[in-house]
Design a protein around this nucleic acid. Sequence first.
DNA 1: TTATCTTATG
Length: 628
Amino acid sequence: MKQLMQLQAVLITDPAPSIIIDPNLAAVKLISATSSRGNPRHAALVFSILSEPNLIAWNSLLKALTDNHLYSLALARFNSLLVRRPRLNPDEFTFTSIFKACAALVACHAGEASHAFVFRQGLDSNLCLANSLVDMYFKFGLPKNASRLFDEMPMKDVVSWNTFISGCSSYGDVLSARQLFDRMSERSLVTWSAMIAAHAKAGDTRAARELFDQMPDKNVVCWNAMISGYAQNERFSSAIELFRTMLQVSSMQPNAATLVSVLSACAHLGALDLGRWIHRYIKRKGMELSLFLGNALADMYAKCGCIPEAEGVFQQMHDKDVISWSIIISGLAMFGHAGQAMSAFHEMLQRGTEPNDITFMGIISACTHSGQVDTGLEFFRMMREDFMIPPKVEHYGCVVDMLSRAGRLEEAEDMVASMVVPPNVIVWGALLGGCRIHADIERGERVVRRILELNPDHSGSYVYLATLYASMGRLEAAAECRLRMRKQRVAKTPGCSWIEVDHAVHEFFMGDRAHPRSDEIYAMISKLRHKMRLAGYVPNTSVVCQSIDEEEKEDALSMHSEKLALAFGILATKQGQTIRIVKNLRVCKDCHDAFKVLSKIEEREIILRYRNRFHQFREGLCSCKDFW
DNA sequence: TTATCTTATG
C-alpha cells in the first residue's frame, strides 16, 4: 500500500500521466526520471512493483543502478534476471550496463562470461557494445586483450578512437595514444581532452599545453584536464594562473571538478584568499558539497591552518568517507592537537567508518607532534593487529621519527632492524634527525653510512650530517662534509617559501633578490634585526655549517626564505593581520626562535607550515611548545 | 546505449 502511494506521488509529477496505460511503459518512464534525479533506490522500488517486468524495464533498472554507481547491485540484479527469467534474453542494452559495471568493479570473471555470451549471440558486431568491451578490458588491466579487440573491430567511430586513447594513457602508453591522435581525421572535444590528460599523466605538461592552445574550441572538461594536469605535476601556480584565465579571459563557468583541482593547488601553496573566494563562489552558485568538493575544500582549509573552517565544511557534508575523516584527523595532527585528533578518530569508529593506512598515518603523526610516544606505539599496534593493516614504510618513518625525537634511539634502531619492508632514506633520516637532536655522533655516523649505501646522491643526509657536526662544534668535519657534497655535485634542495598577499602568491628562495620590492624587504630585515637585538635576542648561529665568522653567519641566517617572506608579509599587509607562510623544507631553530620574538614585537599572529607541520606564533610563543 | 576532467599520507 505504501509503495503504491509512493508510485502515485511520482506519477503526479509526470507531465502526461493519463496517456500511459502499459505498466511496463509507465515504470520505464518513472525509473529513468527518478534515476536522473539521482534517486536509484526509488527507481528500484518502482521496478519491484511490476508483476511482470519486460526486458526494457529490466534494462532501465540496470541502467539506473550503474548510472548511479551502484555497480554490485546491478550485477546482482543481472544475475537474478538470468536465473529467474530465462525466457528474457538480454540484449545489447542490457550488456552496455553490465560491461560498465564489470569495468568499474574490475569484475573480470563476470566480464569475460558476459563477453562470451555476447559473442555467441553475435551481439559483438554492435559498435557501442564493442566500444564498451574495449574500455572494459583496459580497465581490467588487460591492454593486450583490449588492443586485439580494437584491431579486430570491422567498424570504428570517433568514440572507439577516444576509448583507445584514454585506455593507452591509463596504461602509460602515451606514444601509441599520440600516434593514433595524429592520424585521426575527425577529432571531438573528448579526443582533445583525453590526449591532453594523457600527456599530463605522463608528466609532460608542455606537450599538454601545446595541444590545449591549439584547440579550436574548448569546453569545461578541456580546461579541467589542463588545470588538473598542472596540479598533478606540482605546477600549482600554473594551475591557479590558468584558472584565472579561464574566468577572466574565456568567461567559462568552472564546475565541481575544476574547483577540486584549484583547491588542491591552493592547499599546497597555502593560498587561503583564493580558497576562501572559491568557498564563497560555491555558496553563491548554490553548488552541492559533494564528497569530492567537500573533501577538497576541507583539506584546503586544514592545510592553510584553518581547522575551525575545515571542521565547519566537514559538518556540512552529508556524505563523509574515510578521506573526509582522515583530512580532519591529519589537520588536527599538523597542529599537534593530539587529544582532538584522537576524539575524531574514536568518533569515526563509532560512526562505522573503517580507518585505512592513511588515517593511521594521521593519528600516529599526531602522537609524534605532541610527543605522546607510548600512545603512538599503541596506535601502531592497533593498526597491525586489530585492523590487519600492513604497515608501509611511511608508518615506520613516522614511528622511528617519534622514538628518535624522544631520545629512545636504541628502540628506534631496533625498530628499523625489525622492519618487514626494507627501510628507505626517510626512515634512516628520521633516526639520523634524532641522533642530531640528542647529539649521538657515533650512531649518527653509522646511520649516514647506511643512507649513502642506499642512495649515494642523497643530499639530505649530507646536510644532516653537516648539521650534526656543526651543532657539536666540529666545524672542520662539517666543512669537509660540505666539500664532499660539492665534489659529488650533490644538489641541495633550495629552501623556498610562499606567501599570499592580495590574491597573488609570492615566492622566495634563500638569499633571493628577484622580488620587485627586494630593496624594501632587505631594509625591513635589517630593521627587524635591530628591533630584535634591542629586545635582547641573540641569534642562534650553531645551525650554520660553514666555518665563517659570526657576523657572516648572522647574514646567512637572515636570508632564509621564510624570513624574506615574513619581511614582505609585514611590509605588504595591514598592521595586526595574520601572516601565513608555507615552506618546502623544515624550519631551522633560529627562524623558529626569531618568529616567536617577532610575533611579540610586531604584534602579529604568524602561521608557518612546512610539509605536514604547522607552527602558530603568537605573543612570543609557538603552538608547538618548542617540541618539534 | 559507448568515450574525456576531480580529493587525503610520506
